[in-house]
């Protein structure tokens, strides 16, 4: 067992998936030496644990590195540094057969239901591919298993010989989910599983994922930018900003008591489905920094309404603060002060 590391900061004994100081830097070609950084730090030191059977919601704006984290865990992207422990085995050190063995227990549901299904394969071939490759089943047995999976995700077994283009977006995503659970994995990465779908079918797909997760005791990394989804389906939350986790904790604590100004801003932007509601909303000024010219100190300071001199020089660690709930950690120098956001817009 290579690289089984116990961390004092995290309770890795109970974690099925543990990510340790994950970094992914993309090299940049520079024309002039003066043109800023030569790497884009898409993910810069991310750590988290997912215990068996629990769901972690990874939230953040586009470009914050959420997808890179998800794909790195499955080694679809090779990280620059860090460790990914699955059952205390460092996935990044594995090759060949051992890697395939671990991969079998980790699956992924993709964002785009069109691009994630091979247009030249039937639904049955797509769903059954893993079973075939790992020689779990073949022939009639394979077809029966695939039919069972199709029914489990709410599709008719009569549809199993159809090609992807005859299915609707929601049906395609169901095929993608059937493929992901075919090998009976213990961990699933769901990368924005519903953001490409019609609003009317999103909840059905999320409920299906949630049912499967409960039924099979799956651990799940749910990558999303939709906080309402996180609130409803996740046990824990990690908020990412500019390649780092800025706040993490149980969903309950994060929603009730957010301490990072970025988390607060995100939460204040959640729409409330009540026409009479007059929430006071804070609109975050500026944009995500240019990764070629990262800001000094806290990466959030250019947009932070509370930024002081210290924020421009010191990078805050992701740490617990006085009075924090267990596992609630925030990367802000002033996390313990619970500063109220100023109101920039009175939302209608």
């Amino acid at each position: 067992m290579t690289g089984a590391v116990k961390s004092t900061l995290h309770d890795s004994e109970s974690a099925l998936v543990a990510v340790r100081d994950l970094k992914k830097h993309f090299p940049m070609r520079r024309r002039f030496a003066s043109e800023g950084a030569d790497h884009i730090k898409a993910v810069d030191g991310v750590s988290f644990d997912i215990p068996a059977g629990r769901t972690l919601g990874l939230v953040g704006e586009s470009g914050s590195g959420k997808t890179t984290v998800g794909r790195s865990i499955l080694r679809l992207i090779e990280p620059t540094a860090g460790e990914i422990l699955f059952d205390d085995v460092n996935v990044l050190a594995l090759r060949g057969r051992a890697l395939r063995g671990v991969r079998r227990q980790m699956q992924m549901v993709f964002q785009d239901p069109v691009a994630s299904l091979n247009p030249r394969m039937t639904a049955a071939e797509i769903v059954g591919e893993g079973l075939q490759v790992h020689r779990v089943a073949r022939g009639r047995d394979l077809r029966e298993r695939v039919a069972g999976l199709m029914r489990r995700v709410g599709l008719s077994a009569d549809d199993m010989d159809g090609y992807p283009h005859v299915f609707s977006g929601g049906q395609r995503q169901r095929i993608g989910i059937a493929r992901a659970i075919a090998l009976d994995p213990r961990f699933i990465v769901c990368d924005e599983p519903v953001s490409a779908l019609d609003v009317s079918v999103r909840l059905q797909i999320l409920n299906l994922l949630d049912d499967l997760r409960r039924e099979r005791g799956l651990a799940c990394l749910l990558i999303t930018h939709d906080l309402t989804v996180v609130r409803r389906f996740c046990d824990d939350v990690a908020v990412m900003y500019f390649g780092r986790i800025v706040e993490t904790g149980s969903a309950e604590n994060i929603f009730a008591n957010p301490r990072h100004p970025y988390t607060k801003a995100l939460l204040s932007a959640v729409p409330v489905p009540d026409p009479d509601s007059r929430t006071r909303r804070f609109v975050l000024p500026g944009e995500v920094p240019d990764p070629l010219n990262p800001p000094s100190g806290c990466p959030f300071h250019p947009r932070c309404p509370f930024a002081v001199d210290r924020c421009r020089t010191d990078i805050p660690d992701l740490i617990s603060w006085s009075g924090a709930a267990p596992r609630h950690r925030t990367a802000c120098h002033y996390a313990d002060q619970d500063l109220p956001l100023p109101v920039t817009v009175s939302a209608p």
């Binding site: 679809l76 395939r100 691009a115 994630s116 299904l117 797509i126 591919e129 490759v133 075919a182 090998l183």
Partner: peptide, 26 residues
């Protein structure tokens, strides 16, 4: 770089299968 190839990799497909089954037909 399409997601269905990534899905095949996650399902355990080797390079030969990916080329013959996923890339070539398309």
């Amino acid at each position: 770089s399409q997601d269905f190839v990534a899905a095949a990799v996650v399902s355990g497909a080797g390079p030969l299968r990916i080329m013959l089954r996923h890339l070539l037909p398309n």
